[in-house]
């Protein structure tokens, strides 16, 4: 650079290089802001999704934000009315809702999922973000929609604020549950405070709970004492090394049967008689 300036031919190259680097700079600046927004906006572990929604990020990958599920929900013939207003379950997140933009969700306390048997929202989805296979079961060898397979979330009970746990008579959630006695059941026990009354407390069985939120909607307390949370948030996981030895079918955890098969294939004799021993 010190010895004489290059002829103007190089000016264009220099300009090109500078322009390129400007583009790189702008891209990175824009990309960081843009990417950070998308990352933040799509992080919502508490959103309750429509039935058949793919888990977590897979749903956000595939949802094209068209709102066809919302429209199917709003325009079904069975939509209930309250004070002359349609009770529409599904909403499409708009700016200000603090949900991933344009994606469908519902707030069970306001309007729960009414568990339509023909699941119009899932049928309407064009991309497979709401996957029919996740809400289908085999009936006579044919796949058919089964809303009871939905796992939108799981109901959780706040034992401190559920008035049934105080000994008061309330079974609003139990009565509201579409899988009554399966997803929510009543456990009676003696009330030692009075000595002559019973506690009739509700319990949720997560194996059957669909997360529709009809219980949360029906709960009589000021702020619902039973409420739906996403299953990944509300449920723990025992891990494969804890086995229910008293249960006959161990395929629940998929661990024991495989072990048995392996043992069958390799009896002590076959082990000794095979050449594997030499190879080891």
């Amino acid at each position: 650079m010190s010895k004489g300036r290059k002829p103007p031919v190089n000016e264009s190259r220099r300009k090109f290089l500078v322009r390129s680097m400007q583009a790189v700079g702008i891209s990175i600046l824009g990309g960081v802001v843009w990417g950070a927004f998308v990352k933040e906006n799509t992080y919502d572990p508490l959103a309750i999704r429509p039935p058949g929604a793919l888990p977590g990020d897979d749903f956000l990958k595939k949802c094209i934000k068209c709102g066809l599920c919302v429209e199917a929900c709003a325009n079904r013939p069975t939509v209930p009315y309250k004070n002359g207003k349609k009770m529409i379950t599904l909403r499409l997140a708009s700016p200000g809702d603090n949900k991933p933009l344009g994606t469908p969700y519902f707030i069970p306390r306001d309007v729960p999922c009414y568990m339509c048997e023909d699941i119009p929202c899932v049928v309407a989805c064009p991309t497979g973000a709401l996957e029919p296979d996740l809400v289908s079961s085999l009936v006579d060898g044919k796949k058919s929609l089964d809303i009871n397979k939905a796992r939108m979330g799981v109901a959780v009970i706040d034992h401190k604020n559920c008035i049934a746990f105080w000994g008061l008579q309330c079974d609003a959630c139990y009565r509201a549950c579409p899988l009554l006695d399966e997803a929510i059941y009543i456990v009676p026990s003696r009330n030692p405070r009075t000595g002559k009354h019973a506690f009739m407390v509700p319990q949720v069985d997560p194996d059957h709970c669909t997360g529709c939120g009809l219980c949360e909607h029906a709960c009589v307390t000021e702020k619902a004492a039973i409420f739906v949370l996403p299953r990944e948030v509300a449920l723990g996981k025992a891990g494969k090394h804890y086995l229910k030895g008293w249960e006959e079918h161990q395929e629940i955890n998929g661990y024991e049967p495989q072990e048995e098969k392996k043992e069958k294939g390799k009896s002590p004799e076959s082990y000794l008689n095979s050449e594997d021993l030499l190879n080891e």
């Binding site: 843009w34 927004f37 998308v38 906006n41 799509t42 990958k61 934000k65 708009s94 933009l101 344009g102």
Partner: peptide, 19 residues
């Protein structure tokens, strides 16, 4: 990189017609 359709989450066009 994000595994998400990135423009769809910021598109002013979508925000407008969806809105």
């Amino acid at each position: 990189i994000l595994g998400m359709p990135a423009f769809e989450f910021v598109s002013p066009i979508s925000i407008l017609h969806r809105g």
